[in-house]
Computed example of a mutant assay.
Amino acid sequence: MFIELNDRVYINLNKITRIKIDEVQDGIRVRFYEGNDQVAKSQRFESVKEAKEWIKNKLLG
């Protein structure tokens, strides 16, 4: 099942093995992995709570 990550990127959720919320230099991002390889990342969030809400709305809809 493909979902729209943003206006230019779609990801195949059937291949995603792990989703991780990471705090990086420019803020908090949701990262998507196939096995050990990162295949996509979300926009920047101000808090982990915002990132979790985004995941709930986007993926669990």
Rank of each mutant, 00 (worst) to 15 (best):
F2P: 00
F2Y: 00
F2T: 00
I3K: 01
E4L: 14
E4T: 15
L5H: 01
N6Y: 00
D7Q: 03
R8F: 07
R8A: 14
R8I: 11
V9W: 01
L13D: 08
N14M: 15
N14C: 11
N14W: 10
I16C: 10
I16P: 03
I16R: 10
T17I: 08
T17Y: 06
I19M: 12
I19K: 08
K20S: 13
I21D: 09
I21C: 10
D22A: 02
D22N: 12
D22S: 07
E23Q: 12
V24Y: 05
Q25W: 10
Q25H: 07
Q25V: 07
G27S: 10
I28N: 11
I28Y: 09
I28Q: 04
R29W: 06
R29H: 15
R29K: 15
R31S: 14
F32S: 05
Y33A: 05
Y33F: 15
E34F: 13
G35K: 05
G35P: 04
G35Q: 07
G35E: 06
N36L: 13
N36V: 12
D37H: 11
Q38G: 10
V39Y: 03
A40K: 10
A40I: 09
K41A: 03
K41F: 14
Q43I: 03
R44N: 13
R44G: 02
R44Q: 13
E46R: 14
E46S: 14
E46K: 12
S47Y: 09
V48G: 01
V48Q: 02
K49F: 04
K49P: 01
K49S: 12
K49V: 06
K49T: 05
K49A: 07
E50D: 15
A51I: 10
K52R: 12
E53R: 15
E53S: 12
I55L: 14
